[in-house]
Amino acid sequence: MNTWKRTTAAAAVALMASAALAACGEAPEEGEEAANDFLPCVVSDAGGFDDKSFNQLSYEGVKQAAEELNSEFKDVESNSDQDYGPNLEGLVSAGCDAIVTVGFALSAATVESAKANPDVEYILIDDAADNDFDGEKDAENIKPILYNTAEAAFLAGYAAADYTKTNVVGTYGGQPFPTVTIFMDGFKQGVDYYAKEKGKAVKLVGYQGGEKGVFTGGFDANEKATNTAKQILDQNADVILPVGGPIYQGALTAIEDSGKDVALIGVDADFFETDSNTRDVVFTSILKNMKQSTYEAVLAAGNDEFDPEAYVGNLENDGVGIAPFHNFEDKISDSLQGELDEIRAGIISGDIEVTSYLDN
């Protein structure tokens, strides 16, 4: 073949290669992984992604999974419950393959969207997607992510009962939803267990069981949250457990205003790590490993391994737990950590019974 023919042939090959690349998109640079067209998405409840709690943790789980899958992801915040349906419609229209909905408040909207879009995979955080309470999930393409936080709260209740100097500990919630009262139930059981085992009279204020307790009526860090915390502290509690996202900020204000030595217990995330304003007062936090469980569910969906069966985090699978005592390490009794380790083992083995709504 002469030089002109070789040059023409080479040019033709180059042109065809260029056309093929144009049809498929730009080729990745050497050593660069091709982008994944799987699109995970996440929608918050009204607390927003900066709540330093379950919205933030779930967002971080989606982000981590997207990074590992080498895919983009979309997120949308809700300002009120009126946003849930429209936000889900928007994400479906954007072509989301899997949608994480954060919080029990989104359950009804998630079910409605899932029924209308059976090809989209939904991951519902903190709710069983059983809005008609018949014991069955309301849509097959929803994976519920649940947490038996009563087990971890039991440990926190025991620790609070051991630590208190006034022999009074307290708790209050946002609203009496099962995902709120499950913390309070476990906390109460832990306090009661300590009192029985140690023969020490420790009083719990703010919660009697079920829906009988003190609630702010919402999940905002407002004056009601502060006044409710003051109501608990006025009953001589020196350990306080606020359950309901940002309402703990009201407890911080109440503690500061009281001038008393009061310990705060966080929920969902380790408050010591997520909110530096709590570091002087946070005793421990009752953890839900939401980032990890969200990450695993999204990663499975991205790898075509979506499993719609419910996940229940507990002490045995490290889905729940309690945070270190941080600045309170030198203030707790020398025997407490060893006792907590034994109790944890007893809960896992079933020798120590902890009940919650998830047992139904």
Rank of each mutant, 00 (worst) to 15 (best):
G186V: 08
N289V: 08
Q64D: 13
F306D: 01
T253A: 11
N360F: 10
M290I: 12
E309I: 01
A152P: 03
T253D: 14
E68F: 02
A254F: 03
E29G: 14
Y207Q: 12
A159G: 09
A46P: 00
A23I: 09
Q235S: 13
G244W: 06
S78H: 00
L15W: 06
K200L: 06
L15G: 12
T164A: 07
F154R: 03
E30D: 14
V102R: 00
E121K: 15
E33K: 15
N222I: 07
L15A: 15
V281C: 06
S285E: 10
D275A: 14
S293Y: 13
L315C: 10
K137D: 00
P28L: 08
N167H: 13
Y207I: 12
A297V: 02
D138P: 00
G25N: 11
P28K: 05
V282H: 03
D119C: 03
E60A: 03
L15Y: 08
V298A: 03
K331H: 11
G217R: 05
E30I: 08
F325K: 10
A23L: 15
F38Q: 07
Q56L: 06
E112M: 06
F49R: 00
G302W: 03
L57K: 09
K188Q: 15
A114R: 01
N55F: 00
E353A: 14
F183W: 05
T166L: 11
V13Y: 05
E29V: 09
K291Y: 04
N55C: 02
Y147C: 11
S18Q: 07
N327R: 15
A9D: 10
Q292T: 10
C41E: 00
A251Y: 08
K196G: 08
N289S: 14
M184L: 12
G135Y: 01
D359N: 14
D304T: 04
E89Q: 13
K188F: 05
V243P: 01
K115F: 01
A98W: 02
A345P: 04
G135I: 00
D341I: 10
L287K: 15
Y311D: 13
G85D: 03
V205L: 11
E121I: 00
S333Y: 07
Y311H: 08
A323D: 09
A22C: 08
A105F: 13
N131R: 06
F133N: 13
E151R: 05
E339N: 06
A12G: 12
R6D: 09
A11E: 05
E342L: 13
T216F: 06
S80C: 05
E223T: 13
Q208S: 15
Q82E: 15
A159L: 07
T3K: 14
L88R: 04
A11N: 05
A35P: 02
